[in-house]
Amino acid sequence: MDFELADDALGLLSPAQTDLTPGEAGNVIVAVETYALAVPLAQPLADSTAALTSWIVPVVEIRTADGRVGTGISGVHTGPELLCQVIDRYYAPALVGASSEDILGTWKRLYWLPTHWIGRAGVVHMALSMVDIALWDLAAQRAGVPLWRLLGGSADPIETYNTDGGWLNLSVADVVRDLGSLIDRGWRRVKIKVGKADWREDASRVRAVRKVVGADITVMADANQRWDLATAQRMLPVLAEAGMDWIEEPVHADDLGAHQRLQVVGTVDVAAGESLYSYHAFASFMDADAIRVVQPDVTRLAGVTEWLQVAHQAAGHGLRLVPHAGDMMQVHQHLAGVVLAESPPLLEFIPWTQDVFEHRSVVNEGFAERPRAPGASTAVNPRAREKWQLKGVGGRTSNE
């Protein structure tokens, strides 16, 4: 679907470009295009809240006058058309004609559009994330360096933990087999899903996994918000007994008080963040000592700009910073390890979308190698778009 540029986008004029030098003129945004890819999974998977047969990657491509293209992505179970519509109808008219280099100014300008009143979290905020990632991708391309280097990170490999072996729809025997395969391939940290209707099943699952993998493997558990406070309190001693490194999203993501009570009384660290959409929300949880493992997601927060804000907050509180990977680590491989923190960087790895991108992630023996190509590693492989693009989703806005 094509969108014509109006002189006035919902009462907010696009910034005029006057008296630009030739270099600055090349930075001007001339087109914004959105689409989405549905990448099939090797097998159906489920946690306590969702059953998946594919992972959807919404995409925005921002083109500048000098022919560069910055790519922003998200990752969702459903509703990719909603993210694309926010960009097409509300953000793109305010982007075309603006400078791609004014990243923070653009972030603030889009955040305070009238859509702010219906979307300080969720779809509108995630759409802003896609735009922000695309602008940072352009910035790194212009600098001729990978994004992690632009942000001041070191070239050292980053340790990862693997989430792809512990799904809730798999039997305990299958989980043990899959985790064993990951361990044989070099991972020393793995995560399993919990959140069964009967908490006793979760207890048996946790104990069985620990017994089989042994004491030398770090194991985390993720309830995906499925427990109430009473169930979580019952499970804390079991998790501690099994040596779980953390319990992720044990209760409803918005229930700060429940997270705080669990963290205060338990010996297992509480982890959360994939369902927190702003640096204000993270600040509230950190100030209340409601979490010890901070999991900002660049696709749920409003992009790299807001992710960095949360990362600095977490480091300042002395907390562990472990990103949630709605992007399947594609952008986070650049972000981990770019802030001054006491704990070593750690990344979540899920391999579902590797074939989407021109530059795949490289993981050896559980450690992610830093990307070498300029940009944010988000450019989409044209063959992937041909295979997996969703019909009827997305649009294009241009003054070309």
Rank of each mutant, 00 (worst) to 15 (best):
125 H>M: 10
214 G>W: 03
223 A>N: 07
137 D>C: 06
225 Q>R: 09
150 L>I: 13
265 V>R: 15
10 L>H: 02
167 W>Y: 05
223 A>S: 03
113 L>V: 00
10 L>M: 07
128 L>V: 14
132 D>N: 13
183 I>W: 01
43 Q>W: 01
138 L>E: 10
379 A>E: 11
102 D>S: 10
85 Q>A: 13
92 A>T: 13
400 E>Q: 10
208 A>S: 15
59 V>L: 13
109 R>P: 04
146 P>W: 00
171 S>N: 11
219 V>T: 03
355 D>T: 07
90 Y>V: 02
131 V>Q: 12
187 W>R: 08
380 V>H: 07
319 L>M: 11
131 V>L: 08
349 F>Y: 13
126 M>A: 01
172 V>A: 11
213 V>I: 15
286 M>V: 12
195 G>Q: 06
70 G>P: 14
201 E>C: 06
94 A>Y: 01
386 E>N: 06
180 G>V: 07
230 A>W: 02
251 V>K: 08
105 G>H: 05
114 P>K: 02
329 M>F: 01
71 T>I: 10
280 H>W: 15
391 K>Q: 12
300 R>L: 12
228 D>M: 06
38 A>H: 04
318 G>N: 05
77 H>G: 09
382 P>S: 03
99 S>Y: 04
293 V>G: 09
4 E>T: 07
262 L>W: 02
156 D>M: 11
315 A>H: 02
183 I>T: 05
232 A>R: 07
40 P>R: 02
44 P>C: 12
132 D>M: 08
182 L>I: 08
302 A>Y: 01
28 V>S: 02
10 L>C: 06
200 R>L: 08
39 V>H: 02
106 T>A: 00
233 Q>K: 10
162 N>T: 03
108 K>D: 07
165 G>C: 11
307 W>S: 07
180 G>E: 09
317 H>G: 11
160 T>E: 07
114 P>Y: 04
311 A>R: 00
202 D>F: 00
199 W>N: 08
397 T>E: 08
46 A>W: 01
155 A>S: 14
247 I>R: 06
294 V>E: 10
397 T>A: 07
315 A>T: 14
314 A>H: 02
116 H>K: 09
362 V>Y: 01
284 S>T: 09
153 G>Q: 14
227 W>R: 10
232 A>I: 08
72 G>Y: 02
315 A>K: 00
110 L>A: 07
191 K>T: 08
93 P>H: 05
173 A>V: 15
42 A>S: 14
121 A>N: 04
91 Y>T: 05
203 A>T: 01
3 F>A: 08
